[in-house]
Design a protein around this nucleic acid. Structure first.
Lengths: 134, 134
DNA sequence: CTGTGTGCAAACACTTTGCAGGTGT
DNA sequence: ACACCTGCAAAGTGTTTGCACACAG
């Protein structure tokens, strides 16, 4: 499924900015920040257009946003394998890459009574396999 | 342990803004945003002083910051019971309150090989006991 | 052709920095 | 007395909004 198909499938117009964002995210294992996305093709689209496109794609659940400890935001495509479960994110503190982990996180056990949990977000920080080899 | 004692214990000067932030957080079960802290005593301190005080308190591990899904930031005091373990946070989507949960989160099992985890952050979203009763 | 997306300008919110003056110890 | 905190002004960054034009369907 490529960018154009994804957009058509969600009844979204097939515009340059959206196509570009989706392709970039599809081509990358890791989640990307706005700057990382733009790095691939700089200054072709306005910053505002970028934000609006990201918002639209997020609303349609084509992508999801990940907020890191330092408040920076990254985006990742919603791949089939990950769509169902709440999945964890791994933030490598050395190379700053963010990876979606397919591993389903264990349900929070021992939660105090009275809380109803709608969603669980897990952010792991540490060292990724690539950085570890050095 | 009150605000002044805490400051002294960390070799920090006993200034108005710091004392005020610590007392507010001590008096509240839940984590507070900058605005929520200020609501109790508005405009007595400059916004910049607030930020600097928060940063200092965070560096000394007197408080910790919690980043919510919408990128808003809340602060909570580091209570003894919670200090050791990585603890989870619960964000009520109805009343917007954020609570530190003492429940230790289960270690992420089934993590793909090669990742070294330094810290785990868990943010639960849903309905808190107070909101549930209605 | 029509509704939606885009670009530009501007506004807004949050956070940081520099500097002069004030305060805690 | 001295180091450190504070307030003010200003700048930097991320994000949103309004409006006119352009483009996809």
């Amino acid at each position: 499924m490529d960018a154009e198909q994804i957009l058509k499938h969600h009844n979204l117009k097939n515009t340059g900015c959206r196509k570009f964002i989706i392709s970039e995210l599809l081509n990358n294992e890791s989640a990307l920040s706005e700057h990382e996305i733009k790095q691939a093709l700089p200054d072709l689209f306005d910053r505002v257009t970028f934000y609006r496109s990201l918002k639209t794609l997020e609303e349609k659940s084509i992508i999801h946003r990940i907020i890191l400890h330092d408040s920076t935001v990254k985006y990742a495509i919603n791949r089939e394998a990950l769509l169902q479960d709440d999945h964890a994110h791994f933030h490598c503190l050395k190379c700053d890459s963010v990876t979606c982990l397919e591993t389903a996180m264990p349900a929070p056990s021992g939660l105090p009574a009275g809380f109803t949990v709608d969603s669980v977000d897990v952010l792991l920080e540490g060292t990724c396999p690539e950085c570890k080899q050095k």
